[in-house]
Computed example of a mutant assay.
Amino acid sequence: MSSIVITGATAGIGRAAAILLASKKHTVFAAGRDQTALAELDAGYENITALEMDVTDASSVNAAAATVFDALDGNAPDVVVNNAGYAVVGPLEAVSDEEWERQFKTNVLGLVRVTRAFVPAMRERRRGRIVNVSSVAGRVTVPFFGPYNSTKHAVESISDSLRHELRPHGVEVVVIEPGAVKTRFGSLEKEQIEHWIESAPAYAAQLRTLKAFHHDLHDKGADPISVAGSLVAACESHNPTPRRVVPFLPGSVFIAIKALLPTRVSDWIVQKLTGLP
């Protein structure tokens, strides 16, 4: 059985994956900021140890990492899953500097900070695995999702670089790219779209159209348990696929459109799909 650290484990995909891994007798360190949710995980599930961690705070990450090393008798965990993140949605001109900075501090720098806390020990041991939860949005950009999409594009690039850096040292890097998932995540995105319909009238018509597209997308989204299953597979596989889209359709279609077609054509398709003029 493996020892696995999961950030953002108090809700959604992270929580589902933590519970599923624990049910399979792995030693799971479920990290997050929500103390009530952490206490529920700690008390309610065998093989789960709650780990208070704010990925934007270096001292918090270092303290949590020290707890893991102590629990594992000085050894690195077998797998670190970087799942913590959230989405900022809105017109680029309207999203504040503070919101942009907080978005990158969590989704990008938080991932780097957690990875840096565990990689040296994995490298020295010449064994370990980093699983980064990106998104289909890391390959395809949707209008008004620029802040969130750009962080996931960064995660893709960082993961590719890290995979090559760590391969000679026996440490694997895997990227999971979920599409729309039926979690609170989508509801929070919807709330932001509704906010900007009122607060950014120049974009109101476009945002109303986007709201309808977003509703349909998430209404038909994947169950978090199925996405968690892919995370579990990424942790357990002896030879994991370096990059996995979950579910395969329609996410792979979006990615193929962006990757294979000329920009004018892919732009037209994205505009038609989102209903924007």
Rank of each mutant, 00 (worst) to 15 (best):
S2F: 14
A11D: 15
G14A: 12
R15A: 14
A16T: 11
A16S: 11
A18F: 03
I19C: 15
L21P: 14
S23I: 12
H26L: 06
V28Y: 08
V28G: 02
F29K: 14
G32C: 07
G32D: 04
D34G: 14
Q35T: 12
Q35L: 13
L38H: 09
A39G: 12
E40A: 12
D42K: 04
G44C: 08
G44T: 10
Y45D: 12
Y45K: 00
I48G: 01
M53H: 02
M53Y: 04
A58I: 02
A58W: 00
A58H: 00
S59C: 07
A63L: 11
A65V: 15
T67W: 00
D70L: 09
D70N: 01
A71W: 10
L72A: 02
D73W: 15
G74W: 06
N75M: 12
A76C: 09
A76E: 03
V80C: 09
V81S: 09
N82G: 07
N83K: 07
A87T: 05
V88R: 15
P91V: 03
A94L: 08
V95Q: 01
D97V: 09
D97Q: 11
E98P: 00
E101H: 14
E101F: 13
T106N: 11
N107I: 01
V108I: 10
V108Y: 07
L109Q: 05
V112G: 05
V112Q: 09
V114Y: 03
A117C: 03
R123L: 05
E124K: 11
R126F: 04
G128I: 08
V131Q: 02
V133T: 14
S134G: 08
A137T: 04
G138E: 00
R139G: 03
V140N: 12
V142G: 10
P147K: 12
N149S: 08
S150C: 03
H153I: 06
S157A: 15
S157Q: 11
D160Y: 02
L162W: 05
L166I: 05
P168S: 08
H169A: 15
G170F: 00
V171D: 00
E172C: 02
E172F: 04
V175Q: 02
I176H: 01
P178W: 03
P178D: 06
V181D: 03
K182F: 10
T183G: 09
R184D: 15
G186Q: 09
L188S: 14
E191P: 02
E191C: 10
Q192I: 03
Q192S: 05
E194N: 01
H195W: 11
E198S: 13
E198N: 14
S199L: 02
A200R: 01
P201N: 05
Y203C: 04
Y203D: 10
A205E: 15
Q206F: 09
L207R: 03
L217I: 13
D219P: 01
G221W: 14
D223G: 07
P224S: 01
I225F: 15
A233D: 10
A233N: 09
A234Y: 03
A234G: 01
T241F: 06
R243M: 07
R244V: 14
V245T: 13
V246E: 13
V246W: 15
P247S: 06
P247K: 11
L249Y: 13
L249H: 13
L249I: 15
L261S: 01
P262C: 13
R264K: 14
V270T: 08
V270Y: 07
L273P: 05
T274E: 11
L276T: 07
P277A: 10
